[in-house]
Design a protein around this nucleic acid. Sequence first.
DNA 1: CTGAAAGCGCTAACAC
DNA 2: GTGTTAGCGCTTTCAG
Lengths: 356, 356
Amino acid sequence: MTQRSNRTRATIEDVANAANVSVATVSRALRGLPNVAPSTRARISEVATAMHYRADPAAARLAAGRTRTIVVVVPHLAGWYFSTVVAGVEAVCAETGYDCIVMAVGTIEESNRLLDETYHLERRIDGVVLVNIPISEAQARSLSERGVSCSTIGVRVGHQPNVSIDDVTAARLAVDHLIQLGHRRIALISGQVEDPMNFEVPKMRHRGYADALEAGGIGLDDALVEAGNFGIDGGREAMAALLDRPSPPTAVFAMSDEMAFGALMTLQERDLTAGRDVSLVGIDDHDVSRVLGLTTVRQHVAEQGALACRGLMAAIESPTAQFETIRSPVELVVRSTTSPPPVAIPSTGVQTSRLS
Amino acid sequence: MTQRSNRTRATIEDVANAANVSVATVSRALRGLPNVAPSTRARISEVATAMHYRADPAAARLAAGRTRTIVVVVPHLAGWYFSTVVAGVEAVCAETGYDCIVMAVGTIEESNRLLDETYHLERRIDGVVLVNIPISEAQARSLSERGVSCSTIGVRVGHQPNVSIDDVTAARLAVDHLIQLGHRRIALISGQVEDPMNFEVPKMRHRGYADALEAGGIGLDDALVEAGNFGIDGGREAMAALLDRPSPPTAVFAMSDEMAFGALMTLQERDLTAGRDVSLVGIDDHDVSRVLGLTTVRQHVAEQGALACRGLMAAIESPTAQFETIRSPVELVVRSTTSPPPVAIPSTGVQTSRLS
DNA sequence: CTGAAAGCGCTAACAC
DNA sequence: GTGTTAGCGCTTTCAG
């Protein structure tokens, strides 16, 4: 008797013995491969479930070369945007039976190390979804040469699966809204100027801002652009700098809701009210934006993660396939931080505040 | 010549040949095991790096039985609290070279399925960190019988590594603050009444609330307790219900910042100002709390994740070890949503609002 | 439709 | 200190 049932996990051999077939047949049967008699298959799967048998992942990976594991790479895990993307990715993984590893690469150096030394990834994962991680064509090639499929959110590379919003349009939506309200001095709180992560995203949003102004017949003014680094503190400082200008803006467009939150803090500190003294619009529709009444351009972040993950799975199935980029929709959500500019008293030149 | 360098990843054998040693020696050398001559070790690691050699994880796992992979289980991935915990866990994994799989179990059923059918986990991961996931002694035993170590955040089980805050104290901190300001009608926005996830956490925080009131000589009033389900919408509805009471509270303690955010929305909708008309305090110190000026009890969430992960790693090293629970500190952060109760005009019985 | 057998690439005794 | 060898548990030709 091969009865080694002393607390050890059942192996494929145990199942084979119990079902009176060979291990090969068990393997085929359980993986749904053809050439197994229905009756045999039924018996095997019955025995297998009774024994709580599951193929040892390591053994299966070693033999088959596929890991059924992907990794999702993000700049940080804790922010609203990235954690929401990860949630979307994980949901699809759970559904498809993939393991979902997370990796945070805080700096461009870390990210490049990961993407250059792709042999770290080889045979370890089937694919990777890159969330706003800059990747060169060479790096993408290096990945696929090592059998690692790749899907991106944000910047596109090659013909890999990709999902992104139209950042130019998103920004235009925001700034057009401001212009329609009557604003002319519209500031921009941008991502980073030095782009440490080399995002395309801030560039495109900047373009949307510029396009909108141009279309509105408003000249660009460098004094109305401040970097906010996509964080609350950055937004706060940027807004402070903007308000300290000789002629401050009546409205500001922040490239992300979190930066807009920071801007809101500055406004409060100065006893200014958003939507009355200064208008403010962001991008994202962060969970908390509705609490703050922030006007913003909504994007569907979890869905983007899910779509990117499905794309990755498709790429894993057919590594040579070409993929079209998927455009995720955006929409303006008007709340209370935007309104027409405060009425000036142009002819007299007397400022409201001096009237008292 | 065993020159099979045609795009195939280098194996341990390739390294062995190149370094003129046996595979066993390569294995020892590269893993820092003893009994390798320093010179040999140096040569091997040189050759190995030159060849970009990395042990195939699947093969290593199969042979050694250890996966160097853990999973972190959370109710959802996208919330502030959980994503911040995951960030802490991931950071430690990155540092120690573990792969960090994430799993979201939205319901108690899912979570129990995972913990009951532990054979799913066996040989797949070395350990699991459970973030506010209820686990029974039996489930914990079942895990360890299958060689899966376990570390928890929140509820403790057995002598597994655990980190948690003192929830009773956290709640007391919040409510004592309110009492010291002079409030007597202090409401509670609780987690869930039916506890679908069976958290200890809301129970303990409820106790802290009750303790504080008792210590302040204030009687409990069931009409001042509403469930908010730990979400923004829940908090919003709870606050609305509270304000609709015949005699509404002058202050409310929400068990989490997100519920407090929802409460804030309700206040705004009714043109009430937090910190003037009603005082409000939460627990967490969510990223956005400072933007809203929310008084809260801060906890250090990422650190909790990191500590729990280190605990897990220790448990993996020595599976039979007993661990003391780690208490993560909390602190009251006073901002602008709390202040003394609005002055009543008790003797006349005339309400302030009628004076106009 | 099923079985035998040869690996997958590594680790861990055990010899030397 | 170093090499030999027997697996780890599965997948996958190749026969039959």
